[in-house]
Amino acid sequence: MRRYGPLITLLGGLTLAAVLLTLSMTAARKPAEKPAAAAEFGASATETVGATPTTAAPPTTAAPAPLVGPVTYAGKVIGGGATLAIAARDGKAIAYLCDGRKIEAWLQGTAVGGAMSLTGKNGNLTGTYAGGVVTGSITARGKTWTFRLPTVAPPSGLYRATATVRNAKVVAGWIYSNGELVGVMTTNDGDPTAAPALDTSSGTAVIDGQTVYAEQVSGS
């Protein structure tokens, strides 16, 4: 028994790996068939996860070239639980994720050599970009989403407003993509709430009776 112990350990690990791999294959197939259902039951056995660039790995030998841009990627994350926009210029990127109700995260980082790496107070993002598409994963407030976003052209894109409304500091973000606008704002670093509609043509929104001006973010 003692002589075969190590072999049994190895075989045990192999068996466990095989079982988990089989379960994972089943899990991976489900959301592809029913993306809407997967979003509804986000807490079930299947959940979108991990850094998952599906495009080719970026070149590592050549000197990495920064993403010059300016370019904005925007759209819903896989599963549809939130909307994400990434604006990049000269190798720098800004990302904003929000669900239009109570989750938002601003991230900053780099877009160099086909890879994006952004961090912020409430999360982080890794991804790869190529051919006008960025894929990857974002973790914000303990949840992880994967995404595959195309580039968008104005008026679609990312908008940000910072203003003082009735002595309160308000930071609001909006993403306009596929004709749909979502926005979330945070007042005095409190809990995020839904932001009022933004008029993308004038770049204004009315927050608590006061008109605030939003800027389109195009990397920085």
Partner: peptide, 21 residues
Amino acid sequence: GQLHTPTGIAVNLAGFSGPLT
């Protein structure tokens, strides 16, 4: 790991906020 196209999805364990945790 290099050849298999990452799925982004695998089995998850109950009781945690996400697969990364």
